[in-house]
Nucleic acid binder design. Structure first.
Lengths: 253, 253
DNA sequence: TGGCGACTTTCAGGCTGCTGTCAGGTTTCA
DNA sequence: TGAAACCTGACAGCAGCCTGAAAGTCGCCA
């Protein structure tokens, strides 16, 4: 995997999640390629696909079991999934149905030796975007990957990961260690402000500006109160205080 | 407020363009099927495809020349195009490149006898979404049509499962814990809107847009009422309220 | 054509939980 | 050690939401 730059620009997606906050705005690898998850247990085929796809300047994570693939996908950071149907520890179709049912919309192309028409139809109806039968031509695979992913492009994604905290601004979702957390309007506004520039310190004044219309007179310690409420929900040390300066998302190092 | 007629169902698209007051969410034929443009000069194959696709409750316009197809496409009212590459009066690839250059994004599936890998790659790279080589299975064609069109609509799956709730948009069916649930037209419209992008927050305004003619004045809390009724039928916590923001399918924590 | 039932819309009153404020406590730093 | 900065539990007020009821609308059928 390519090294992760230590500073912005943020517009790429990280997997596995980085320690410090990165803003994820799309499922590209930061250099113009797609970030691809390859789920395949056949070593020879997996190597061929990985080398070809990566050679086309895409970033490929290769996983060989349902189990690891499922946990990787739960973090929704991929632009495309290449899925072998027959895996040693379970069915690819079950995995596909499961991730679709969980609302994960990442495009999926099935790569398989199953060549019955009924298999193809089942695969596509289970939520796959395309279906390629082995043996296939690697050039065609790339063309189909691009065909599928250009449909997926342009969807609004804005995901920020900081430690085990995941903030999806587009979907207005927060989770801590995989657990969804419900926030009120003001709580969300504060968190949203803090996550707008991950890693940066945000002053109380900036948060107040985000919370209230310009010119509003706020005389109390509202920001402190909401930070306190957020900490209670997200975990005490997910928001660091910089005395006299402001707040920052993430644990102090 | 001017209601949309209760039947046929709401999730349709009108072609030619509807009168003011009808919601156009996609290029459906008004009865739940896709509006399909078939561009094919082979009479036997064309008839087979038309009959099969139309038999699957889709509306099919069949054109046999580049010329008529191009003018039909310029009005962009189709949900899907099935394109034969070799036509008597020109190249399907040229037509495809032309409509893409004109910004028409309607999904295109190429149906062709050209089975060289290079042909497939050229077709996909020219803007096609899928590529089926003759002879093909008509069931697979339908599955691919649905896969492509649901992606086009930003609706990655027609079947959504959230917890023990199962919503099949294509079949217009809902079940909770395996038990079928009957919904009225408006109830379905609200649920359909909520399930179009599983996991996303849907504002009251968006739901109202789905229910009522454009420009209608909002005078009451109709959306709240239907959410309340849906909850009574589906289960209290199947729809989460995000105060001041909207609603979302699924339980909130 | 009229009656019927299912569906839709509106309304009002009640309820929930969000919000801003404050006070008293804790932490940090000079 | 004192002052400043920050934290947090509690609470009243209220906006936003929920829901039962009733009136209105529509399609169906005899």
């Amino acid at each position: 995997m390519r090294p992760v730059p230590a500073s912005p620009p943020f517009e790429f997606c990280q997997y596995p999640p980085p320690e410090v906050g990165y803003k994820v705005t799309s499922c590209w690898d930061g250099t113009g390629g797609l970030r691809v998850l390859l789920i395949e247990d056949d070593v020879a085929l997996g190597e061929a696909v990985r080398d070809h796809v990566a050679g086309g300047a895409h970033a490929v994570d290769w996983m060989k079991t349902i189990d690891t693939a499922a946990s990787a996908l739960s973090t929704t950071g991929y632009g495309l999934v290449l899925l072998d149907l027959r895996l040693p520890d379970g069915s690819g179709i079950a995995l596909l149905k499961d991730i679709r049912a969980r609302g994960i919309t990442t495009p999926v192309i099935i790569l398989t030796a199953h060549d019955q028409i009924s298999d193809r139809i089942e695969g596509l109806n289970s939520g796959a975007d395309d279906y390629l039968v082995k043996p296939f031509n690697l050039g065609e695979l790339t063309a189909r990957m691009l065909a599928v992913s250009r449909r997926y492009e342009g969807r609004p994604v804005s995901l920020v990961r900081i430690g085990d905290l995941e903030i999806d601004a587009a979907e207005r979702r927060v989770s801590s260690a995989g657990e969804a957390i419900a926030l009120s309007g003001r709580e969300w506004a504060v968190l949203d402000t803090l996550s707008a520039r991950p890693g940066a310190v945000v002053s109380k004044a900036q948060i107040e500006e985000a919370l209230y219309a310009f010119g509003s007179e706020i005389e109390s310690n509202t920001v402190e109160v909401y930070v306190s409420r957020l900490r209670r929900k997200l975990g005490r040390d997910q928001i660091a205080t910089l005395r006299g300066v402001g707040y920052r998302l993430g644990r102090e190092r």
